[in-house]
Write a protein that binds this DNA or RNA. Structure first.
Lengths: 149, 149
DNA sequence: TCAATCAGGACTGATGCAGTCCGGATAATC
DNA sequence: GATTATCCGGACTGCATCAGTCCTGATTGA
């Protein structure tokens, strides 16, 4: 199914939410604004901080802040930060010399062009592109206030 | 990790093996030639037959045959046949109106351009492209004869 | 000193995949 | 007609990965 993890989906939502806000934002705040459960938001933000997409400030009045503008964040970076490096098959991934069946695997390196094509496609699309189509209602207002309470 | 299943990898190997051979080939034969376990090859071939990438002939002297040339099979078709439709997120997938949090999910449809880009990239690459780089040793000779026996 | 916040990791349940196997149907051959 | 080789369709089990939660500690402002 070629699917990426839900965390990546959340990450995009969180990053878009972080943009357009001045100063830092706390994970509880983002959780309330997006409707994503608090622990999950915290997890996503920690991952994004590790990937250097956001910076964190600890302590009281702490929170998170975007490192770059949305237009400077290709979706590939988000996927790489959350899901790890983009690699379609195990062959391309970590193993240095080859798959388990070393000399046998006939597709050795064969997926590389496919990988490159996908990587390029994901690099050409930035978060700003994904934000463009966002419902204005969401960008302005916090969600979940009527449904949750 | 954006990974596709191993079955898809096997499918490519099997399809490449099917090409360049006249007449039908049996799954035990392909298994021996590729080094992929027999039951797995059978599973892959059944899936590919369901996806109309290969035709099957039952009974003695039966086997499988390619429906189109490798150059007419985009890798997207193989992925779709084995892994199901290409959809990055659950949003795009099956659910008709939206995710579990209907009115909330702010990314509704937002992944569509990403999906399209990936789909296009995968449609532009055919199995013939992937075959080009194959090691000549593999294309000519059956593998696994010295290791297995 | 206290409270708010992030950091880092452990943990559990659920989900999907990999791989195998079995009984049945079909068709060529003896 | 019997036999054999092959595909068909599905069920099944173990394994890996992911989703989501929680806990303890470190940091920082009030």
């Amino acid at each position: 199914m070629l699917r990426l993890s839900k965390l990546t989906d959340y990450a995009v939502v969180v990053l878009v939410r972080l943009s357009g806000m001045d100063g830092v934002q706390t994970s509880p705040g983002i959780a309330a604004a997006t409707g994503i459960p608090e622990p999950t938001v915290a997890k996503v933000l920690k991952t994004l901080a590790a990937g250097e997409l956001v910076s964190s400030q600890r302590g009281a009045k702490g929170g998170y802040r975007l490192n770059r503008e949305l237009s400077a964040i290709p979706i590939a970076d988000v996927i790489a930060a959350v899901d790890g490096p983009i690699a379609l098959t195990a062959c391309v991934e970590g193993s240095p010399s080859g798959c388990e069946s070393q000399g046998l695997c006939p597709m050795r390196g064969r997926w590389d062009p496919v990988n490159d094509a996908i990587h390029k496609a994901l690099t050409d699309i930035t978060l700003a592109d994904m934000q463009k189509g966002l419902l204005p209602a969401f960008r302005a207002a916090p969600a979940f206030q009527s449904a949750a309470e």
